[in-house]
Design a binder for these strands. Structure first.
Lengths: 282, 282
DNA sequence: GTATCTTTGTGCACGCGTTCACAAAGGCAT
DNA sequence: ATGCCTTTGTGAACGCGTGCACAAAGATAC
């Protein structure tokens, strides 16, 4: 996952579990695709496959919304699209302000999925006066000074932060002060907000690091497997056909040796190859 | 959170819970900041605050890595930076390929956090021949035809998909076929991958929809609260000062009334203000 | 109307993640 | 050396989320 939520203590809202809320957009997307193909009804099994989840989970999720299905038939696609849209609050207009029009901010401004589904970019804000007045994705970039009036005039309640990490908290404070109560944060920083303000973060660097962890693990497992097999093969070749027990022991020994090597490397306090002493703030 | 994982059944790897792995980059970032300020040691409490988590959680997370702290003192910053980096696999080089050099792909290519921490953009790929040869963030864009050779030559095991949704699955298949085992997906689609391949997704649209849900809920609660208060005030004004019990009763009645009003509003299938009937039920 | 077949909705059990609370451990002053 | 103070590391309890498995419910055929 690329996000986390800084929520108050309340975990579920109006009885709908947070985990379910996070999946509703997924269902909605799948349903929209079906709707476009004029499919009238869909079973939980089909829809679950399309959304990439378990059908039992999907049914339980829908059960929190009410009983919208017909037993023996499935769910009415159009009806469900409407119900989920309503539940997510997508039947109304959500003006959004994007702060920080760098590469990422510009990409977000031009993102198609943004405009659809009730979200409307109400304004682009950047602190750099050289950017002021420039056209990005058909909108005029305004200076940070205009942040508060923009928010109040347009009734913005959702803000997107795409500034450098250093500026994020200050921008966040101003957004909240001006009345924004939901923030989508792309800056690699932890934002502190008062109760009642929701923050979700999207963090590239964190996602990559999680992938790297699993990647390393996969490589390690393979290596251990290779080592174990090699050791087992060697042992078998050397001692002839003793028994399965020997191979098992050899495998364990190989694993232990690898562990010790890692431990030894650890003590040096210095990584392998080009391990810089750590600096870059991701 | 902006991501989800399409993992095999294995939930924890090498004894480290997935939830902990997802937080390690957070700790690492906070520790790196401390390291730059030459802070020698840090307590779990301080570090937890900096990372935006609970201190007990942090200690438990670290306990999965081993006993790296000193009781009564705290954790050695440099040592911990190294340990976490190693655990996440950041002490080695991870060549990454970015496919789809549109607005977003270009932004990603130029993202600073990408280059840091062992991640290196090994190549940019785009299907549009008009893009081929162009320079983006100091790198030359290559055509999709060169995808497989690039991956094999550079030993890429992590791929980033920033293509339109329609092309994502095809690109994904080619990446996996060519040997990529970790994918970061920015396209708004569910990707199907074989076992052993990790997929994490970053989805703008989903994040916004989740925020909209909470935003709507907050607005609804406020409205109910206002209604209840208004009703209570009216009741109190009308019946004068009967007694504490009356006020309590009035409050309860108002709450119930508000609940009914909300329920009624729901039944109409018509939301508040500009709630279009969208597609409406069948 | 009855039987059969399909698919929903959910009770239940299990496992992961979080949090509390405290004992163990180390530093530091005396 | 001894006692006090701080902070870690973890056992245990709790709650949320997931998945199984099945009864209830509706459609459809005859």
């Amino acid at each position: 996952m690329a996000t986390g939520r800084t929520h108050r203590t309340a975990t579920r809202s109006r009885g709908i579990p947070e985990a379910t809320v996070a999946r509703l957009p997924l269902y909605l997307r799948a349903l929209t695709a079906l709707s476009e193909r004029s499919v009238p009804t869909v079973s939980s099994e089909e829809l679950a496959t399309a959304a990439g989840v378990n059908s039992a989970k999907l049914r339980k999720d829908f059960s929190y919304l009410g009983s919208y299905g017909t037993r023996g038939v499935g769910y009415d696609v159009e009806y469900l699209v409407y119900q989920i849209s309503r539940e997510l609050g997508l039947t109304q207009d959500w003006p959004v302000v994007i702060v920080g029009i760098g590469n990422l901010g510009a990409a977000l401004a031009g993102y198609g999925g943004f405009a659809s589904r009730g979200f409307r970019v109400a304004g682009l804000i950047d602190a750099d006066r050289a950017m002021t007045g420039k056209q990005v994705a058909g909108l005029t970039v305004r200076h940070t000074d205009e942040l508060e009036p923009l928010i109040k005039e347009s009734g913005v309640s959702i803000g997107v932060i795409a500034t450098p990490a250093g500026a994020a908290q200050a921008v966040c404070n101003r957004l909240v002060e001006a009345g924004v109560t939901s923030i989508l944060n792309f800056a690699p920083t932890v934002l502190n907000v008062p109760d009642g303000v929701d923050v979700r973060k999207v963090d590239l660097s964190i996602e990559l690091q999680i992938l790297a962890f699993h990647e390393q693990r996969k490589a390690g497992e393979e290596a251990e497997l290779r080592d174990a097999e090699a050791a087992a093969a060697a042992a078998a070749a050397q001692s002839g056909a003793v028994e399965g027990g020997a191979a098992g022991t050899a495998g364990t020994a190989a694993g232990t040796a690898a562990g010790n090597a890692a431990a030894a490397k650890k003590r040096t306090g210095q990584g392998p190859d080009g391990d810089v002493p750590a600096v870059m703030p991701a």
